[in-house]
């Protein structure tokens, strides 16, 4: 075997050796070379140290509700309304659509306030009230007339029952 470092095949071979991925024949051939080549030996030892150090980094435990969360997100997505689905299609993927709801509500409130104060609507509002006022006035007038009528009857009867004074 030639020197892997010198002939350019060193990196791949040394990495595979460090990962213990060489077949037994390749590994023993390389190890024979390592006994003779200090630079390759140093490189191989360093690579094995790296591999061993990386082995020391353990995996994390997966949250017990991970699958549940995935299915929950799938279900939420499937229940999405046509409007929000349309919104998601047109908004850039990195935008969140959540701010649109309060912004939309604020716009709706402004539009409602504008319409309420609008002169277009006011005649309607006053005209709606007008018939009511007229009815109230008529009722009052009728009440007054009743009252007057009663007074008028009493005075006539008083006249009828009381003697004429000289």
């Amino acid at each position: 075997m030639g020197c892997p470092v010198e002939d350019g095949t060193g990196a791949e071979l040394i990495v595979a050796y460090g990962a213990r991925k060489l077949d037994p024949e390749q590994e023993s051939e390389l190890e024979r070379h390592l006994t003779l080549c200090p630079s390759c030996r140093e490189l191989a030892q360093a690579q094995r140290a790296v591999w061993s150090a990386l082995d020391a980094w353990p995996s994390i435990a997966v949250s017990p509700n991970f699958d549940q969360l995935v299915f929950h997100r799938i279900a939420n997505e499937q229940q999405r309304t046509p409007f929000t689905g349309w919104l998601r299609r047109w908004l850039p993927a990195r935008w969140s659509w959540r701010p649109v709801v309060p912004v939309g509500a604020a716009c709706a409130a402004l539009i409602a306030a504008f319409l309420l104060k609008s002169p277009v609507l006011q005649p309607l509002t006053s005209s709606e009230n007008q018939p009511k006022l007229q009815i109230e006035q008529v009722e009052h007038a009728l009440d007054d007339m009743d009252m007057l009528k009663q007074l008028g009857v009493e005075s006539a009867s008083e006249k009828a029952h009381s003697p004429e004074k000289i």
Binding site: A11, V15, Q45, A46, A49, L54
Partner: peptide, 20 residues
């Protein structure tokens, strides 16, 4: 990919070889 890996391992050897 080989280029990425070999450069990465070279960097890691410099930083981690002392941990052997």
């Amino acid at each position: 990919v080989k280029s990425l890996l070999f450069r990465a391992y070279e960097h890691l050897r410099l930083r981690l070889a002392h941990l052997a």
